[in-house]
């Protein structure tokens, strides 16, 4: 083997190590007592403890944050599916002269700086008496989920072979039946990827949740960030445990999302 290839393999292996090691280390720290974390020389051998995790899961603020995150993100994704998928299908299959503009409009929503949306929304929700409530958060997140799901679902529907749908029309299916019974099931794999992506996006969202909640509607990222603001008084093990709890749901979608990537590029190749 040439030396160049060995170096290249070493660089790759190092990058793979960097990709996951910090997270693994955080997970390890969440199982440690403080004495094993606050050490000048990192400790690999230690007596594991579940105290941090049980402390985190026993705190009301964390449980409320978890509940808020699940409800707000789940509902917003559901709204995104109900409104985004049909619209994406119509844009993909019934192109008219506005199709390009619609696509650009949906994308351009992503150009808006989150602060620019969050400040006026905060004032609006305050005036409506909905500030710091889940409905306000859900409506705001729906803007995100609808546009992202639509943006990703348009190519997914375009990837469904037209012949299948045309055959269904010949068999006497109506336009809506073709959408329900043909396009949705055939494109399902890519669509699930798009929906999972939108969930990860709102689950990870921070700035809008920070500005639209003060106590009742705090989502998990906000609760986690607050734990750290008490400085070093909070044992690191507990902080690490909260980071692990926050990171687990998006990581559950790792398989789905990497499958989604593969199917997108396989489609490109053919």
């Amino acid at each position: 083997m040439r030396p160049g290839r060995i170096v290249a393999k070493a660089v790759l292996a190092f990058a793979g190590f960097i990709a996951v090691f910090p997270l693994v280390w955080t997970a390890l720290n969440s199982l440690k007592n403080s004495v094993d974390i606050i050490t000048r020389v990192p400790r690999v051998m230690f007596t594991p403890t579940l105290a941090n995790i049980s402390y985190i899961l026993g705190r009301d603020s964390v449980i409320t944050g978890l509940y808020n995150s699940v409800i707000a993100c789940g509902t917003a994704v559901l709204i995104g599916v109900v409104l985004g998928l049909p619209a994406a299908y119509a844009v993909a299959r019934y192109p008219n002269r506005w199709a390009g503009d619609i696509q650009f409009f949906v994308l351009s929503l992503r150009f808006l700086p989150p602060v620019a949306v969050a400040i006026p929304l905060m004032v609006i929700w305050l005036q409506l008496g909905l500030y710091d409530t889940l409905p306000a958060l859900i409506v705001t997140y729906s803007l995100l989920t609808i546009s992202v799901i639509m943006w990703l679902a348009i190519p997914a529907f375009q990837g469904v072979p037209k012949e299948i749908e045309e055959a269904a029309f010949v068999d006497g299916y109506g336009a809506y039946a073709v959408f329900w019974k043909i396009a949705l099931p055939v494109a399902a794999r890519s669509l699930i990827g798009a929906v999972a992506f939108s969930f990860v996006l709102v689950w990870n969202e921070f700035l809008i949740a920070l500005m639209l909640s003060s106590s009742n509607a705090k989502t998990l990222p906000i609760v986690a960030s607050e734990l750290s603001q008490q400085g070093m008084n909070v044992p690191w093990g507990i902080l690490n445990a909260s980071v692990v709890l926050l990171s687990l749901p998006p990581l559950l979608f790792l398989g789905v999302l990497s499958g989604f990537l593969n199917s997108v590029f396989r489609q490109k190749k053919n």
């Binding site: 955080t26 921070f206 980071v243």
Partner: peptide, 17 residues
């Protein structure tokens, strides 16, 4: 698979890590 892990993390988690 390994390289997709970091981007899935919430930014808050990545920042803490």
């Amino acid at each position: 698979l390994l390289f997709i892990v970091p981007v899935l993390l919430p930014r808050v988690s990545a920042a803490f890590v």
